[in-house]
Structure formats: structure tokens, C-alpha cells
Amino acid sequence: MEKLLQWSIANSNGDKEAMARAGDLDPKLLEQLFNGGMADDPTLMQQAMQVIRAEEVDVDTKLVALDNFEMLIEKLDNANNIENMKMWDPLLATLENESSDIRTGVLSIIGTAVQNNKPSQDNFLKYKNGLRKVIDLAQDKNETVDVRVKALYALSNLIRNHGEMAKEFAEHKGLDIIPEILNDDEAKSKLKMRAIAVLTAFLGTTEINDVMILLLRKDGVIESVIDCLQHETDLNLLDRVLNFLSLLLTAGIKFNQNELDSLKNGFEKIQPLKDRLNEDDYLAVNTFCKIQFIKRHRSK
């Protein structure tokens, strides 16, 4: 395995001297490197992790290893093997790598590993600084957009349908991320979209009550989300907004007058896009707006 790693590093760098020192590889090892060979998935995960953590390996080679690792852990059994093979610690340590591309790759792995996978969510929760690290990366304005987007992707999957994780997320003031992004005029649409995805994942996991709505109003979250209908054109973002609103309507939340006015104006703005938006969420919000219009008309 060590010889395979040395040969791979030398070959990727075009270092002929290093390749000569590594010597010729056994054909079986070459088959393993390029075609997967007969190695099982845990062995391939170990090989990828060695490359990811090796200090002498260049960034491009590490990124290939990260991609390979993520493809492997798309299988639930392999995702759960991250814990069994004691790989969460090295993955979390790699979040401190100086390369933003590598940090992005690790965050993508975290999000994929825990997606619809409660055992992996449970395992991740054991690492007390893990959630805090991901929150910090999502919140850091000095980080690249790609890092922050992937951090939010990871957070959505970490807290979705996992009450204990959602509780810890709230205790770490993770909800503070949402208004900071939504109220930032310079924030990219994909960043806002992921922020709303985190919010809906959180609300779908916890009780949506008056206290929660008061908190969201206090930070201007509800108003900022509704405002996206008037000022954003990204279809993915608009779908997230409609899903958030549909979630609130299902919970029986009542909007105040400012929110209703903003919702009316915003919904009129997106009507030409209705055939390209999620039908169920669009209809739910549309029905609500019509009812509010009738109520207002009758009260005059």
C-alpha cells in the first residue's frame, strides 16, 4: 500500500526520479489504482483517506481522492463505515486544510454521508466539535462561496429529521446564520437557497410554535424569505421559499399585515414562472393568497 501511494504521488507530479525510486509496480497494484481491481470498498476508502491526509500529496490528487471517497460513501453501509473505520476524526481535521477546495470536498462528504442516514447522523453527533466546525464555516464571510454552500448542504442533512442534532444546532446559535445570509445584499442566490434549506430542515424537525415564530420575526427571517419572491429569479431559490411558506401554512402560522402585503406583491411577481416551480407548494401558497384577498375584500 505504501509503495502504491508513493508511486501515485510521483506519477501525478511527473517526478521521474521519485518514480524510479518507487520502482515498477506489480500489475495487480496498477489494476487496483486505475480500475479498482479486486479491492473491497473499505480498502478503497482507506486508500483514499491515506491520500487525503498525506502531507506530500498535491491538492489535485487529494481532490480526486475526495471525489472517490464520496462516491464510495453514497452507499449507506460505506457511509456508516466512516465511524467503524475511525475516519470521522481525520475528516474533521481536514476541514482545517488551507485549500478551500479541499474544505469544500470534505463538507460535501459529510453532507452525503449523513443524508437520510440516521446511524451516520448519530455517529457524527459523537464528535462534539464537529457540528461547531461546520457552523463556523457556513457563517464565515471570509470563506469562499463554495465552502459556505457546502457547509450549509452538510448542515441541512445533519439536522433533518434528527431532533438531538437540531437541538445542538440551535444551542450553537446556528439559526443566526440564516438572517445574516438573507439580509446580505451581496449574498449569492445559491447561498440564500442553501440557507433557506437549512431553515426548512430545522423547522421540519422541531415544533413550529409561537415562540419559534417570534424568534424568526425578531431576526427578520420571515420577512427576508418572503422578500426573495420580489427580488430573486433563481428557480431553485424560489422553490425553497415556497416550500418554507408551505411549511408555515401547514403549521397554521398566521402572518402579520406587513408579511401579507409582501407575500401578495412577491407572489404576483413569480406568477409567470408558475409552470417551472414546485406545483404543490405553489398551489398551497396561491390558495392562501386568494383566501386572504377575499377576506380583505369582505372587510372593506
Rank of each mutant, 00 (worst) to 15 (best):
K86A: 04
G37Y: 11
H172M: 13
D26H: 11
D176R: 15
L283D: 08
N209F: 02
V147G: 02
G266S: 04
T233R: 12
V221M: 05
P272N: 04
K118Q: 01
N68H: 09
V225W: 06
V147D: 01
E180M: 11
K167W: 00
D280R: 14
E31P: 08
N117E: 03
G14T: 09
Q47D: 06
V134W: 00
S8K: 13
K62Q: 00
R103K: 10
A187H: 09
Q50D: 10
M193Q: 15
I181G: 02
T61N: 09
K290F: 00
L277G: 12
E232T: 15
P179I: 10
V59R: 08
V145D: 04
I52Q: 06
K128E: 10
L95S: 12
S12I: 04
N142R: 13
M49P: 07
L216M: 13
N13L: 15
V145F: 00
L248P: 08
Y127T: 09
L175Y: 02
K118H: 01
L235R: 15
A201D: 05
G163H: 05
D280M: 10
G220W: 12
L214G: 13
K274M: 05
L191I: 08
N157P: 09
A195Q: 12
M38V: 12
D184N: 15
L91S: 11
W88A: 11
Q271W: 00
R298Q: 03
E259T: 10
E31Q: 15
